[in-house]
Computed example of a mutant assay.
Amino acid sequence: MRRNVGLSQLKLVRVALDDSDPDRARTAAAESLRIRRELAAADPQQGSLQWDLAVCLGTVAETAEPEQARPLLEEALGIWRQLASGDPDDASLLSNLFDCLYALADLDAEHFRDLTMEAAAIADRLTDADPGNTGFQRRLLRSSWRLGDMDLRAGDLACAAGHFAGALTLAQRLADDDTGSVDAQRDLATALRRQADYALANARPEEVRGHLERSAEVTEALVQRFPRTGALHRDLAESRERLGDWLRDTGDPALARDLYRLALASRRRRAVLDPEDTASRLAQAEVHARIAALDEAAGHRGRARRQWREAAELARVLEAGARTSYFEQRLAAMS
């Protein structure tokens, strides 16, 4: 019975996360974790209870700040590794181990490479064992992007090219095989943006714009299909901002400004659908700042003041102290 109560609490966490309600998610997560710990401690040899605890730790980590999330993921990783040592071919167990390694790598700079390589080896094992499993293929995608990032940081453009190009080919195939899958289409949009990252790093600007434009087109098509899904409006805003940044930096400020204004519309829609997403609202303030800087450079001081004011007011509401001060300073300089 208590195990079922813990499961119910964990479901509440997922619902709250989907609703962008972090406070409700944290409350449910704390209760679920308390129950899971008690059950696992009462019967430490029961693998299913250890499994439940590891899943719960990972979910609770999603609701926590980075400094609290890292020890939770480290504890979960220890459990997954112990379980995997007893059943090294269990695909579901390996999938959970991959997810834990991948999440922890984001928070552990010292061991980032080792965690990433371990996760990549698991992704390869899973896809080799079951090439038709979409979930395994998506883990391989994530692994390829991260390996490509490591190659870029190391200056190994040849290896990075293989990882990003391979990921784009895989993402395109998955999207073509299941045109109705939102996840597959989002992965394709991400793969196109990551290919643009590689093209930029490899001094191939003629390819960057095409990849970014196509990524935005894929995301816009998703928004048209699912207009009430806030995460898709956030994705579209990010795609437009990325393309706007590239156009601004390559000498087309007018078109960049148009894209930033479209991005603002997407950010505002996201705020309506998911008002608890403060990160997206702060990103909206940053878009106002981008537009303000373009207007200021073009000599449109009145328009620039309005945009700096919008940015400052949003940052103030969100209690973003440093950014509020910066925006207010820029606004004062325009007076």
Results as ranks from 00 to 15, higher is better:
275 P>C: 07
106 D>L: 10
96 N>T: 09
49 L>Q: 04
237 A>Q: 00
2 R>S: 12
312 A>W: 02
6 G>E: 01
179 T>M: 08
221 A>D: 07
302 G>N: 14
99 D>H: 10
85 S>F: 09
164 F>C: 02
175 A>E: 04
54 A>T: 06
100 C>Q: 03
72 L>N: 00
148 G>Q: 03
184 A>D: 01
62 E>N: 13
311 A>E: 01
4 N>I: 13
114 D>C: 12
299 G>V: 06
287 V>E: 00
252 D>E: 15
189 A>V: 11
298 A>F: 11
5 V>W: 11
8 S>T: 10
297 A>Q: 08
133 N>S: 15
178 D>G: 04
324 T>G: 07
259 L>T: 04
292 A>H: 00
91 A>Q: 11
285 A>M: 04
60 V>A: 12
220 E>Q: 10
76 A>W: 01
134 T>N: 08
243 L>S: 00
250 T>G: 06
195 Q>Y: 11
180 G>L: 01
79 I>S: 03
221 A>G: 06
183 D>A: 15
78 G>E: 08
283 A>F: 04
85 S>L: 13
251 G>L: 01
69 A>Y: 00
267 R>D: 12
192 L>G: 03
217 E>H: 13
216 A>R: 04
10 L>M: 08
9 Q>V: 02
211 H>M: 13
62 E>K: 15
321 G>W: 14
210 G>Q: 12
178 D>T: 10
74 E>H: 13
335 S>E: 13
329 Q>K: 15
52 D>C: 08
43 D>W: 10
147 L>K: 02
197 D>R: 07
59 T>I: 15
222 L>I: 10
307 Q>N: 10
114 D>I: 14
223 V>S: 05
132 G>R: 11
298 A>K: 07
296 E>H: 15
49 L>Y: 04
106 D>G: 11
20 S>K: 09
126 L>W: 00
98 F>Y: 05
297 A>S: 07
283 A>C: 11
169 T>H: 13
316 R>L: 03
207 E>Q: 14
71 P>K: 02
152 L>D: 00
94 L>F: 08
92 S>I: 13
53 L>N: 02
7 L>K: 10
38 E>A: 05
58 G>D: 01
298 A>N: 10
76 A>D: 01
41 A>T: 13
107 L>M: 09
319 E>C: 12
67 E>Q: 15
20 S>E: 07
126 L>Q: 01
132 G>K: 12
108 D>G: 08
62 E>T: 08
138 R>M: 10
269 R>Y: 10
148 G>P: 03
161 A>Q: 13
214 R>M: 10
105 A>F: 03
235 D>I: 04
239 S>A: 13
316 R>Q: 14
275 P>Q: 05
323 R>N: 13
261 R>P: 08
64 A>F: 06
251 G>A: 04
242 R>S: 05
104 L>A: 02
327 F>I: 01
325 S>V: 14
266 S>A: 09
326 Y>F: 11
122 I>P: 00
85 S>E: 15
257 R>A: 02
203 A>W: 09
55 V>E: 05
176 D>I: 15
158 A>W: 09
7 L>H: 10
164 F>V: 08
203 A>H: 14
34 R>C: 12
276 E>F: 09
287 V>K: 00
150 M>C: 09
64 A>T: 03
187 D>I: 06
322 A>R: 11
173 R>Y: 08
244 G>H: 03
181 S>Y: 03
